[in-house]
Design a protein around this nucleic acid. Sequence first.
RNA 1: GGGGGAUUAGCUCAGUUGGGAGAGCGCUUGCAUGGCAUGCAAGAGGUCAUCGGUUCAAGUCCGUUAUCCUCCA
Length: 935
Amino acid sequence: MGSSTPVDDRTWLFLPCPEISRCLLLVQMAFRLPHLLRCDTTNTDGSMFRDQTYGRHFVRYYCTMKTNELREAYLSFFESKGCVRRPSDVLVPKDDPTVLFTPAGMNQFKNQFLGIGPLEFTKATTSQKCLRTGDIGNVGVTAYHHTFFEMLGNFSFGDYFKKEAIHWAWEFLTDKKWLGLDPQRLKVTVYLDDDEAYDIWHKEVGLSTDHIRRDDEHENFWPAGAPSNGPDGVCGPCSEIYYYPPSGGKEVEIWNLVFTQFNRVGDPPDNLKPLPKQNIDTGMGLERCAAVLQGVESNYEIDILRPLCEAAGETVGKKYSFAGPEGRALRRIADHLRACAFAIHEGVAPGSHGAEYIIRLLLRRAFLEGYLIGMREPFLHLLVPKVNELMAVPYPELSKTEQTVAGTIKEEEQHFLGTIDRGLGKFEKLVEKAKSGGGNVLPGKEVFDLHQTDGFILDLTQAMAADRGLTIDMQEYGIAEEDHKRKSGQGSWGVMAAGPLDEIQKVVGDTEFLAYETTSSTAKVVGLIVDGQPVEVVKTPDARVDVILDRSPFYGESGGQVGDSGTLSGPSLLVNVEDVQKHGGLIVHRGVLVSGELKVGDSVDAQVDDERRAGIRRAHTATHLLHHALHQVLGDHAMQRGSKVEDDQLRFDFSHGAAVKADELLNIEDIVNAKIVAGAPVSIDYMDLKDAKAQGAMALFGEKYPDRVRLVSMGEFSKELCGGTHLDNTGQVGLCKIAQEENVAAGVRRITAYTGKKALDKVRESERLLEDVGRALKTPQLHDLPRKIDQLQEELKTLRQERAQFTKASVANRVGELLAKAEQVGEARIVCIELQDVDRDTLREYADQLRNQGGSIAVLLGTTIEGKVALLAAVSKDLVKRGIKAGDCVREAAKAVGGGGGGRPDLAEAGGKLPEKTPQALEVAATYYRNALNG
RNA sequence: GGGGGAUUAGCUCAGUUGGGAGAGCGCUUGCAUGGCAUGCAAGAGGUCAUCGGUUCAAGUCCGUUAUCCUCCA
């Protein structure tokens, strides 16, 4: 490729081009790319470029608008319009149960759109990292599909509306100071009857009518099709902006302006009620727009993605080119890996549930692309540094978790290789079966079963089947898949609609939060909810009720700390509060009405269960000590990944690649308890987030923090951002006992520990258990127990062996006698007798020895075991050949003792419930054998 | 959150309609063999994960618990 390099760190981009003069080419390129800085068709020595990807003639160029610059330009443009620049929300929202991943820029502003809570600003702009898996099949195939992408957005909460949104979008796209795109290449759409938007585009912006199209509710309404099909809630028409590339390729939707102006209530007609406050929600795909500005045909060719595709190619040993045979696979690897790296960075490791499962799926699909190319060892993790390098400008924090993320990915890759390995055996059997049946189709049901139980992704099975000239019955597969989906139960995503709690909050505002200062106070009831509906009064005894107070000493579950419990009381009124949750700024007391009645407006005494709160405080402070100890013993990578703090017990998840060794665990426990004994003071300070970080405070990646944070410090060794309730001094924890260490997801370990009273209880419990065992084994010296148990087991084994030998010997003694007394029918003998004090094994031993020594022989033995009859029939091989069947015999005989049985022709067993009838059963058997031998 | 599956010898795994617990590798011993993954023979090694149920009889059928794998949302 060309020898000269760009003047700064800009990356050359490449396009095929016709063989034309350099001058003409420059004009053409300048026309295409408003930000073109430099372009070339030849090397400095005048020779033509040669490249297998782009052919003989291509142009090499670079332009000012790198993706990072576009992102920055967008944000500063809207800042200049008065929007507040907000950081990207986390990719995996922890406090929004309606989504697994942030799907769009507006997600972090849900409450502002719904009018819940205070408005710190009325317009905002963001570049939001998003993850969607709905179109995963298209990723790598089309030019524009991603799972992970960034969305540029500007938002208005009752501030500016259509006019500004449209004008600003146009200004940013076409003004030479900003993107400077050719207006002739832009066309827009509006919703069918949105004349307001149409007129702004046509009359104010000056777009000619052939550049404006009206589209229906499925194309130009949010949510799509909402007027006819719902869901209920806020909605509105959209206006989309399309770019028509000079290459004549397909148009690209680069910007969608959503005008949320309605609240949908029920089905048409007249179901769209105007909202009192109108909002703006716009989204511009960063990668798409970058592709337009950089003059490339696909998002995967832009400066922050193409190098990743190329790096992916290198790790699998293939050269990446867009149209090359591995192009699609490498793009998928690049896309999925980017998504996984970001999610894992935020602490969502591959797992079996929720978001964690999606990440596992993405990672496995990415790995599979490499596997099908021929990779048989982990390779994805090698690309993590490349992702971080390309995304370092907007997300510098990625570098801090690089090792953990790469390690987690590597572990999952190895894990998946193991899964593939295990499934291969079953797959081979399927192939065998299909081929031996003469067919070349694998049954869909069994292929799905392979997928469902062994994680064999369909693509893999298909590829491997194709290698052997087999296909899969996809229709049957589809049926099995549907069936599984139905059985495993489909949950529905919540839609964006305000619930009764939001209504209450709009009226009364946030609950005043007293939990840091006190555990009891008087308060006024400002809202009651029963069965999800707001009510004015509750008087049914035992009714479950959610109570909202104007102020509350209760701590609502958050930051891993469980909600308080306690009571709300008044004259002749008692509500048991069992759980307390936070909903936005509200504290929701979930409880049961024990007595009296509760009305909105009532004054109540709110009393937190002090003892339980004290236990929670012990556990929470101990959690910080544990976090500190983990860093000391395991290293700084042992970052918190989640926690659950309860009454004197805690669960702490952290990243660590391997099981924590026993001695490490002891060491951790020692450090925690040393810090407890040290009695370090616990202090709480409020400060700006950046100051706290400057002090080295530990914060969770992927957690959203407000600008003012609460810093919890213990002595000089621990500083964490935390909203929980803590002790005044670490000494008050008393004791911390680690109970368990386990694996929860790839690269994530969990420690369970107890504090205070429960720690003591746990120790006592195991002591008592040991003492019980010692008593049972008559070993008062507990340290003798392991030896005692070994000794007893050895003894038991020896006795069993001796007994078996003894039985064998005693059987041998009697067999001769039994044979001597046996009934003779021709050449054969019949032995039908009852034995005393023998078990089933001994009966078999008799039968074996009788057959070994008795030549042609038919046997039926009976005995009584635990009040029930046991019968065993045996027939020597020569008699079996004559058609005498032990199974038939024993079945007949069993009827006489009220039972049934069966077995093989040479040996069969049966039982019955009537021991006193055993002689009759023996007679039935003898008769059966006689008849059979004579017949 | 829900679904499917697994758990049998030290290891890897078979085990049909319920009727006598198996193979390969490894281990021990003996014999053969001057050498590499040597050959032959014998042997040891099992709470069939757990607890309960059905049955005359459960590794096998049903349920519980634990651990692991896996899928769906």
